[in-house]
Structures are given as C-alpha cells and as structure tokens.
Measured scan of single mutants.
Amino acid sequence: LVRYRTISKIPQITLNFVDLKGDPFLASPTSDREIIAPKIKERTHNVTEKVTQVLSLGADVLPEYKLQAPRIHRWTILHYSPFKAVWDWLILLLVIYTAVFTPYSAAFLLKETEEGPPATECGYACQPLAVVDLIVDIMFIVDILINFRTTYVNANEEVVSHPGRIAVHYFKGWFLIDMVAAIPFDLLIFGSGSEELIGLLKTARLLRLVRVARKLDRYSEYGAAVLFLLMCTFALIAHWLACIWYAIGNMEQPHMDSRIGWLHNLGDQIGKPYNSSGLGGPSIKDKYVTALYFTFSSLTSVGFGNVSPNTNSEKIFSICVMLIGSLMYASIFGNVSAIIQRLYSGTARYHTQMLRVREFIRFHQIPNPLRQRLEEYFQHAWSYTNGIDMNAVLKGFPECLQADICLHLNRSLLQHCKPFRGATKGCLRALAMKFKTTHAPPGDTLVHAGDLLTALYFISRGSIEILRGDVVVAILGKNDIFGEPLNLYARPGKSNGDVRALTYCDLHKIHR
C-alpha cells in the first residue's frame, strides 16, 4: 500500500512540481520508500527539464536528425535550378540546329562534286560548318556529364541527390541515346576521305529529338503553341524528305545512260545542264529549293507536275512521300480545326451564355430598361472574369491554397485601402477568403433606401454616388468604403439613402 501511494504521487509531482519531503505519510521509514524516492526525484528532475525545454521552444527539443539540413553532394545540380533551365534551352537550340543542318550536310555532301578544292585539302579548321559541328559534339558530351550530376524525382516524389543513384537512373534511361548522339564521328573518321560515311553517321544526332519531343509535351495545353509546333514538325519532315529526294537524284545521276532524272530535267529547265562528264548542272541553292518544293507539294497532295519522278527509285520514294503525307494530314492537320476551336472556345461560351440571357429575357418578357441593365451587367461581368467562376475553380483546392490565391487576387485593395494598413498577414488572409466580388454598370442602383444592410462594401474600381431623395450626399471612388460596420450592432440596419454607380464599378463586399 505504501508503495502504491508513493507511485500514485508521481503525476502530481510531474505537473505541480511538489516535493515529496513535505508529505508526512511518505516520510515513514520503510525500505521500499527509501529505494523508490531517489528514482522519483530523478524522474521528476528529468520531466521538469523536458517541460522547461518545451515551454522555452528551444531548438534542442527536436531530434538531432530533424535539425540537420538535407545534404547535397558537391557538384550536384538541382533539376529545378536556373542554371539547369538555361542549359536545357541551350541544348534545345543545338538539337534544332542539328535537326536542320545534319540531314542537309549528309545529303548535299554525298558524292558532291561542286567546283573547288576537296575538304581534305583545305583542312578541318577552315570549314565553318565542321567547326560548328565540333562545338555541338562537345556541348552534347558536356550535357552527358551534367546529367550524371543532376537530381531527379523518383516514384515516391522524392528528390534524389545521391550521385550513385543518379548515375544508375541515367544509365537506365537516356544515357545510350545521348551517348550515340554525342559521338564525334568527324574526329574519329577525319582524314579518311569518307565524307559520305561521316554525313550518314552524323544523322545519329537526330535521336535527341525524342527527348525534345517529350520536353515539349508540357506545352500541349496551349493551343497556339501546339499549332506552332505542328507546323514546325511538318516543315521539318518536309526538309528531311527534300534532303533524301536530292540524295536519290544525286546518286543516280552519274550512272544513268539517259538523262531522265529530276536533276537533269531541272538543269535543262533553268539552262544549267550537266555536261557529258557529269559536272556542271544547277547550283546547290536551286537543287535544295526545288527538292523542298517537290516534297511540300507531295505532302499537301497538290502535285503540280513541273517536278516529277521519272526513275524507279524516284517513283518509289514519291509513293512513300504520299503515304507520309496522308498520315500527316490525319495526325496534324486533322487537329488544326480542334485547336482553332479551342482557341476561340471563350468567344463561343460568351455567345452561348448571351443567347441564354436573351432567351430568358424573351421568355419572361423583361421590360426594355431592365433588359438593357441585365445585358450590360452580363457584358461587364464577362469582360472582368472571362466567364470563369472563381468560386467553382477554387473549390477543388485546399483552404490554405485558397487563402493564398484570394490574398493575391485582392492584393491591390488590401495594400491601398486604409482600414487594412497594419493588419497582420493572417488577418488579411482571413479577410480575403470572405470577400465576394460584384460588378455594376453605370446607372445601376446597388442599394435602395430602406434596404437591409448586411454587408460592408469596398470599391475596387469606378465611382458611385450616394443620394437622399434627389440630393447627392457624397461621391465615392476607388478604395472608399460604404455599408454597415460589421458586428457593431446586434441587428442589421437599414439604408438611409440610395447608392448608384456612376461608372463601371468593381466592388468587394463582406457579409455579416
């Protein structure tokens, strides 16, 4: 019993810090008490220290592992850092350059016999395009090294910054494609005289377009951006097909006994025919423009016929181009109408809503002055909100995010209106959640004399007048207030005048 009563005193000691020596009952000389009392004092002292730490809000209350900052290894790049964003855009520009100039170089340097010394005699450094290609190869190699040090988000939505895990993730992902696209074939085969082989191998750079397509997928929600990307894709495919079309004609031209190829026909049409040795002929500019003209006309199913396939190889390629053109029509131009419709969806919704308003007016036989006010209010409210119901949009977000959005939407009023000066951010967040926005066209009466005042109004834009009878008592403008002081009276009061809008007004109100 003594032991039980001794232990039962522990909660009292913990909360009230009572010393055991003052209790005459606990001072009985028993061996059990002498053993338990020192333990009680020690526990009391420890609990006292913990309570003191909690009340003082000291940093040592938290466990040590929670006080440590997340460790980022040296030379690790955050995937959302500004440097990584700028670097990704730079790589994107280099990939676009590669997609345009690599097929052009591979096709127009394929057994090209233009006048001038061969590239091997001039030297590697004197070729501007080769120098640019070398810079692109170096940048792609540097990009691989950067990807080995860039964080990523795993399946659990955690940012991984450990170098080993980053390397394994990159090896399992895009490393092989990036490595093949970054191989400097110019340096590996330079001086061997195989410019045709170098041009063909350099087309491996186009593998990076797969990554670019995935990154550009984030802009699919913007109709104008999608339309622009589709047109660029169409032009890029036409450019690639033009390079292939020229390569076919250029390879067949020296081996044909009869002059029936499209390059021969082009030379005869523009007065620059090929001679018996295969030299001469149109310039590279004429060849490229004509090839691009043929691919565009074939892809769009126009086909004027002034550039036509004559050999079997050219006919087979033309059939493939027609098939590609039909697929592009289905996948690209078939979506253009939907994209344009999405661009004008706001206008369509406006006309639909206006039609419903006019049908309501016609069905209920609203008189002319009231009908005009109804239409003007709808037009003004639509121009202010673009038909978007803010309350319906915010309803799907958590309250903390709703408060931040409301604070942002009402920031101008909260910053410049005098009653809100000096208020804490928590108070402003709470008030912003209570605001209701209303609009009024010129001549609209917001409050009639004798109406119950259940709200306090803040003028965000425009001006109003307060009338008693036919006498203008006051004219209020931006950041002015009218209405009933909230919670100042037990019952809502009545208006002693009319409140009429002089201009288009936007008002925020808080109800009782």
Rank of each mutant, 00 (worst) to 15 (best):
Y65Q: 14
Y65P: 05
L67P: 05
L67K: 03
A69V: 06
R71Q: 12
I72T: 15
H73P: 14
H73E: 12
L78Q: 08
H79Q: 02
H79E: 05
Y80P: 01
S81K: 14
V86I: 14
W89G: 04
L90W: 05
I91N: 07
L93M: 10
L94H: 03
L94I: 08
I96H: 01
Y97R: 01
Y97I: 01
V100G: 01
V100Y: 01
V100D: 01
F101W: 15
F101Q: 07
F101I: 06
F101A: 11
T102V: 07
P103K: 01
A106Y: 11
A107E: 01
L109H: 15
L109W: 03
L110D: 15
L110V: 14
E112W: 13
T113Y: 04
T113K: 13
E115S: 14
G116M: 08
P117S: 08
P118F: 04
A119Q: 01
T120I: 04
C122E: 01
Y124V: 05
A125Y: 13
Q127C: 03
L129M: 11
A130C: 03
A130Q: 05
A130N: 03
V131C: 08
D133F: 01
I135F: 07
I138S: 03
F140N: 01
D143N: 03
L145E: 01
I146K: 01
T150Q: 01
A155F: 09
A155T: 14
N156T: 13
E158N: 10
E158G: 13
V160S: 01
V160G: 01
S161E: 10
H162N: 04
A167D: 01
V168W: 13
V168N: 09
F171D: 01
F171Y: 04
F171N: 01
F171A: 09
K172C: 09
K172P: 01
G173I: 01
G173V: 01
W174K: 05
W174I: 01
L176M: 13
L176R: 01
L176A: 11
I177T: 04
I177W: 10
I177C: 14
D178C: 01
M179Y: 03
M179G: 11
V180N: 01
P184W: 01
P184E: 01
D186Y: 06
D186S: 13
I189T: 13
I189W: 13
G191M: 03
G191A: 05
S192H: 14
S192D: 09
S192Y: 07
E195C: 15
L197K: 07
G199F: 01
G199L: 04
L200G: 04
L201F: 07
T203S: 05
T203K: 01
T203A: 11
L209P: 03
V210R: 14
V210I: 13
V212P: 10
A213T: 13
A213K: 10
R214P: 06
K215H: 01
L216S: 04
D217C: 12
R218Y: 08
R218E: 05
Y222M: 04
Y222C: 13
A224Y: 14
A224T: 12
A225M: 04
V226L: 12
V226A: 14
F228C: 13
M231S: 01
M231G: 05
C232W: 01
F234S: 01
W240K: 01
W240S: 01
L241S: 01
A242L: 01
A242H: 01
A242T: 01
C243S: 01
I244K: 01
W245I: 01
G249E: 01
N250Q: 13
N250V: 14
M256D: 15
M256P: 11
M256F: 09
S258T: 11
S258G: 14
R259A: 15
I260C: 03
W262Q: 03
L263W: 01
N265P: 01
L266M: 03
I270W: 03
G271P: 03
G271Q: 03
P273S: 03
P273L: 01
Y274W: 04
L279A: 14
G280P: 01
G281Y: 03
G281C: 01
P282H: 05
D286E: 06
V289L: 01
F294R: 01
T295D: 01
T295E: 01
T295F: 01
F296H: 01
L299F: 01
L299E: 01
S301W: 01
V302M: 03
V302D: 01
G303D: 01
F304R: 01
F304E: 01
V307Q: 01
V307C: 01
S308H: 03
P309E: 01
T311E: 01
E314S: 01
L327A: 03
M328P: 01
M328H: 01
A330L: 04
A330G: 03
A330D: 04
S331N: 03
S331P: 03
I332Y: 06
F333L: 12
F333S: 03
G334M: 01
V336D: 01
V336R: 02
S337Q: 08
I339N: 04
I340R: 03
Q341Y: 04
R342T: 09
L343W: 05
Y344L: 13
G346N: 13
G346M: 05
G346E: 11
T347A: 10
T347V: 04
T352F: 11
T352N: 09
Q353V: 03
Q353L: 07
Q353W: 04
Q353I: 01
Q353R: 11
Q353S: 09
R358M: 04
R358V: 01
F360A: 03
I361N: 01
I361D: 01
R362P: 02
R362I: 03
R362L: 03
F363N: 04
H364C: 04
H364E: 01
H364P: 02
N368K: 12
P369K: 04
P369A: 04
L370H: 01
L370M: 04
R371P: 01
H380W: 15
H380Y: 15
S383I: 09
T385F: 04
T385I: 01
N386E: 04
A392T: 05
A392Y: 07
V393W: 08
V393M: 04
L394G: 01
C400I: 03
D404E: 03
N410L: 06
S412A: 09
S412Q: 12
S412T: 13
S412L: 06
L413I: 10
L414D: 01
H416C: 12
C417D: 06
F420D: 03
R421V: 09
G422D: 15
G422C: 12
A423E: 01
G426F: 03
C427T: 10
C427Q: 10
C427P: 05
R429C: 06
A430I: 07
L431I: 09
L431A: 02
A432R: 01
K434Y: 04
F435M: 11
F435G: 02
K436F: 07
T438Q: 13
H439P: 01
A440E: 04
P441T: 08
P441F: 09
P442K: 09
P442E: 05
D444L: 07
T445E: 07
V447T: 02
V447L: 12
A449R: 09
A449K: 12
